[in-house]
Design a protein around this nucleic acid. Structure first.
Lengths: 119, 119
DNA sequence: ATTGGCAGTAACGTTTATGTAACTAAAAGC
DNA sequence: GCTTTTAGTTACATAAACGTTACTGCCAAT
């Protein structure tokens, strides 16, 4: 998410978008709702994200303190990610998004169809 | 918002992000919570958005049916934007974001300070 | 005749975000 | 000794998103 200039940062929505904006972050966070998940599993559950991007996004989320990275010193390595206390506070937003998601998609799809039909 | 590939689109969160993702859309929608607002006023209320981007984003929101554009044929022209019925359904998400926004920003700021202090 | 306000548009440039492909280490299993 | 597995990294490239500046048409007021 591109940085905002100082002024806009009085808006609370701006703040959230700074932390969970971007294409993949809400999706990743959504996968962590039910507890820790390891890197490889995330990659499988979100097939269209490249490993590089996944790594990057996880790193950012970790730096912002939204998730915690547990690295077990095993061979082959095992790394798990889970929501931190701060990260848990995003759950209501994610829930609201999830609830609305499919409904809205249908509504908009239908709306667009009606526009094409011409009103 | 960059397009998602077909596969990920089973995720409801992806859907919302397709429509209200992006740097400015949630902010614009947030400004329309209390009824129609004209273009110039939006530009003033969101000073860091350029008029071009504002225009673009509004157009996208309109195409997706989230907002309605009322153009009054006056001189000088007057154009107002307001949430459509579909757009209204996003309100819970925006509310959740707003509620969380400042809280989370403080928490994260504090967290980062503590990291710098070294744990 | 000039200025100002409104809601844009056009041309152009920059910055982020995202993607691909190839590569790494180290132990365990065959 | 070769392959597999995991969680990455590196180098490189593209695509979206965002931004700046300058410009438009029209009427009303100065």
């Amino acid at each position: 998410m591109k940085k905002f200039k100082a002024h806009t940062s009085t808006c609370p929505i701006v703040h959230i978008m700074t932390y969970i904006g971007g294409k993949w972050k809400p999706i990743i966070l959504g996968r962590l709702l039910n507890g820790a998940v390891r890197f490889g599993k995330l990659a499988v559950q979100i097939p269209d994200i490249s490993r590089k991007i996944l790594t990057e996004q996880l790193k950012e989320l970790e730096e912002d303190g939204l998730i915690i990275r547990h690295s077990y010193n095993e061979k082959p390595p095992r790394v798990e990610y889970e929501l931190s206390e701060i990260g848990q506070t995003v759950i209501p937003v994610l829930m609201a998004m999830t609830e609305l998601g499919s409904k809205m998609h249908e509504a908009i799809t239908e709306y667009k169809r009606s526009v094409i039909r011409g009103h």
